[in-house]
Write a protein that binds this DNA or RNA. Structure first.
Length: 287
DNA sequence: TTCTTTGTTCCGGA
DNA sequence: GTCCGGAACAAAGA
């Protein structure tokens, strides 16, 4: 379930291993990802050198001389690197001890540095889209996004202005990618717990201190998770097949019926559904 | 067999 | 026109 920290981890491991590599071949096993991969995809990418890899929200961007490749991992997408052995790479010479089903390997990018970048996605909700431009502001997916959480402008002033006349609850506001981009269900639940705010609170009702604290905690929790290699709940693994450990630090997500981890609090963690998504909160310290 | 899970888009109602 | 949230999407595990 890749959210911002997980994508950041993937970006960093990719950068180390394949930045400046050239794509020399592409094999597509399944075109039917969230958007169908066009027939021209391989032809337009073969021969291109990866000049830079960046991240915006939960999107990965591969930069080429005159093109951009936008990638989204959806819910279960994984990018894996494998070492190729000469000319038999598609038969037997991939080696991996990961618990990953090979028939969910949808795309193989063969690189000139002896590595193969594999896109694996059980649910096929992820996508790749190639653009004939190097300008990020031409990409509609990115244009719609709100501020990055680490942006300095993401503060109380921005929050106040955005929630004016809004009736949304705070959980849904934080999930709204046009408000702040990169958070998903896990980090929203955890950030609200840290901030002692109940997920059902109407966003307008937060006072200035609560807003300030919540914004601070969002930045803090994302940074901490990145430092732990992200969370490995269900499907997430980084590009080298390593799992993150942030899930060891969850206080509410998946903790239904457990005692609140705040020493002075005698509350219990409740699970409710908000907009078809599970929400977890302490019934005592989150107000 | 049914429910749950994930992020995003689409669509209908207020 | 704007805002909001439910449904849909794929697939697997409980």
């Amino acid at each position: 379930m890749p959210e911002l920290p997980e994508i950041e981890i993937v970006k960093r491991s990719l950068f180390k291993m394949i930045n400046k590599a050239k794509i020399i071949d592409i094999k597509i096993n399944n075109k039917n990802l969230r958007y169908k991969i066009p027939n021209t995809f391989s032809k337009n990418l073969i021969g291109e050198k990866i000049l830079r890899i960046s991240r915006r929200s939960k999107y990965l961007i591969f930069h080429f001389k005159k093109k951009l490749l936008l990638a989204h991992l959806g819910m279960s997408g994984k990018l894996l690197l494998m070492r190729s052995c000469d000319n038999t790479i598609f038969k037997t010479s991939f080696y991996y001890d990961l618990n990953i089903l090979r028939n969910h390997n949808h795309i193989y990018f063969i690189l000139n540095n002896g590595l193969v970048l594999i896109y694996n996605d059980v649910r096929r909700f992820g996508f790749f889209k190639l653009y004939n431009t190097t300008q990020l502001n031409k990409i509609i997916f990115l244009k719609k996004l709100g501020l990055e959480p680490f942006n300095r402008t993401f503060g109380v002033k921005y929050f106040k202005k955005f929630v004016q006349n809004r009736k949304k609850n705070i959980k849904n506001l934080l999930m709204d990618q046009t408000f702040v981009s990169g958070l998903g269900n896990i980090y929203v639940n955890e950030a609200l717990y840290m901030s002692k705010i109940k997920p059902l609170r109407i966003c307008k009702s937060l006072n200035k201190n609560e807003m300030k604290n919540l914004i601070f905690n969002i930045k803090k929790i994302l940074k901490f998770s990145i430092s732990k290699g992200g969370s490995s709940v269900r499907d997430f693994q980084n590009t080298l097949g390593k799992s993150g450990t942030f899930q060891q630090f969850f206080h509410v997500y998946g903790q239904k019926n457990k005692n609140c981890s705040r020493i002075s609090c005698k509350g219990k963690i409740k699970k409710i559904t908000i907009s078809n998504r599970s929400s977890f909160y302490c019934n005592r310290c989150q107000i």
